[in-house]
Each structure stands twice: as structure tokens, then as C-alpha cells.
């Protein structure tokens, strides 16, 4: 119970910190992925893009928004806490580092929920044909967030400076989207990159999101891969995020 209270308090502290920035946050959460959706449609030929492609673009934009919230923004938040001395305040408390990470994670999930919902509404408004399998979609989104948050925590815990950390999280966030077959089919990628891209969490996430948006449920492999990556990155993140220095 104490642990739950700790997590909720950390979440509330982070949430209160952004309540005056809800407007810019919603704008950013919506504008980047939505613009990427429109851009991808335009490049593919707005009117002639087949339904399957439009679904891929929407799935890609959802994964893009998850990458933004879970790596770039979460990483920024963790880095800010670390390099402005706020983390020291948490370190003075009888609080487990994992409770802190979970609290921040809940905050990232809340941000992602808003962002994904907005994109689904916009997708529907733009006429994307979808029959979302919501329970499965939620599972995929949660697992994707855990994978990406784990990476964000690792970068934020290891960065030597705020600027180095934010550069790394931005690069990682963008790289995982544009170096993976999120907006395009893997066949159009260079062969060497294709092998590498098949291992990226965003590849599994995009495939799983697209399948569930189409009403499918054959995503066992993707869920397994995302679970393994989530466990690995979070375990590493928890190991690196500690109050006590050596």
C-alpha cells in the first residue's frame, strides 16, 4: 500500500508540474504525429493511398506519439529532475528508486493515453477505415510504452549532462521511428538495415498496432518480443536508477 501511495505521489508531483502546460502538451502530442500521418499520406499520394497504407500511417503515427512521450519527453523529465537537483529530494526520502520510476512511468502512460486517443479520433475523422480491437490495442500500447520508457530511463540515468541526455533521447526517439518500418514497408529498406530494423521495438509495435486497428489478433510474436524487450530495458533502467552513488 505504501508503495502504491509513493507511486501516486511521484505521479502527482510530475503531473502538477505540467498542469500549466497542458495546452502546449496537447498541441505537441497531436501536431507531430498527425502531421507525420498527413505527410506520409501526401508522399504516398493522398487520394490514391490504399486503405492498408492509411492504416499503416495511422499505426506509425501512434507509435511515433508513444516514442515522443515515452523516450523524448519522459527522458527530458528524468534528465531535468536529475540535473536540477530534484532527484536529490527524492533520494532524501525513504522511497525506493523503483517507486520513483513507476511514478514517472504512470505519468508517461497518462500522456500517451491522451495522445493516442486524439490520434484515433483524428484518424476516424479523416476517414481511416478501422475496427480497433481495443483490449488488445491497450495491451500493445502499454507494452510499447514500457519498452520505450525503459530506454528513456537508461539514457537519463547514464547521461553525463542534461544536453548530452536530451540529445540522446531525441536521437533515440526519432531513430526508432525513422529507422524502423513504421511508416513504410520493410521491403523498401536497404537489406542490412532491414535485419537490424526487424529487432527494434517500434517495428513490433507498429505491426501489432496496425493489426489490432484492423481488428486482427494474430500478434503473439509481437507481444512476446515487446514483453522481452520491456523486461530487459526496464530491468536495466531499474538497475541504473539508484539513489546511492558509488
Amino acid at each position: 500500500m505504501t508503495r502504491v501511495t509513493d507511486i501516486i505521489c511521484v505521479f502527482r508531483i510530475q503531473f502538477a508540474g505540467t498542469r500549466r502546460e497542458v495546452g502546449p502538451f496537447l498541441l505537441a502530442a497531436f501536431v507531430f504525429p498527425a502531421a507525420m500521418y498527413l505527410f506520409a499520406n501526401a508522399v504516398a499520394g493522398v487520394e490514391v493511398a490504399p486503405e492498408q497504407s492509411r492504416l499503416r500511417f495511422l499505426a506509425g503515427s501512434i507509435v511515433f506519439s508513444l516514442s515522443l512521450t515515452s523516450i523524448s519527453w519522459l527522458g527530458y523529465l528524468l534528465l531535468e529532475n536529475r540535473f536540477t537537483g530534484r532527484l536529490k529530494l527524492f533520494a532524501t526520502l525513504p522511497l525506493a528508486p523503483s517507486s520513483y520510476v513507476f511514478g514517472v512511468l504512470v505519468f508517461a502512460i497518462a500522456q500517451a493515453a491522451v495522445s493516442v486517443t486524439t490520434l484515433l479520433v483524428v484518424g476516424r475523422a479523416l476517414g481511416v477505415q478501422m475496427r480497433p480491437n481495443f483490449p488488445l490495442l491497450i495491451v500493445v500500447i502499454l507494452l510499447t510504452i514500457l519498452c520505450l520508457c525503459g530506454l528513456g530511463v537508461v539514457v537519463a540515468a547514464r547521461a553525463r549532462s542534461f544536453s548530452q541526455g536530451s540529445l540522446l533521447t531525441d536521437t533515440l526517439g526519432a531513430g526508432l521511428i525513422f529507422l524502423a518500418p513504421v511508416y513504410y514497408a520493410p521491403e523498401v529498406m536497404p537489406r542490412a538495415l532491414r535485419v537490424f530494423a526487424q529487432l527494434l521495438p517500434t517495428t513490433f509495435a507498429a505491426r501489432a498496432v496496425q493489426t489490432t486497428l484492423a481488428g486482427g489478433h494474430a500478434i503473439g510474436n509481437e507481444l512476446l518480443a515487446l514483453s522481452v524487450i520491456a523486461v530487459a530495458t526496464l530491468a536495466l533502467g531499474f538497475k541504473l536508477m539508484k539513489w546511492r552513488e558509488d
Partner: peptide
């Protein structure tokens, strides 16, 4: 040297 949460 510790920081406070300025928006709280």
C-alpha cells in the same frame, strides 16, 4: 544542492 519543484 537540491532543486525544488517550481510549479508546485
Amino acid at each position: 544542492e537540491a532543486g525544488v519543484f517550481e510549479r508546485l
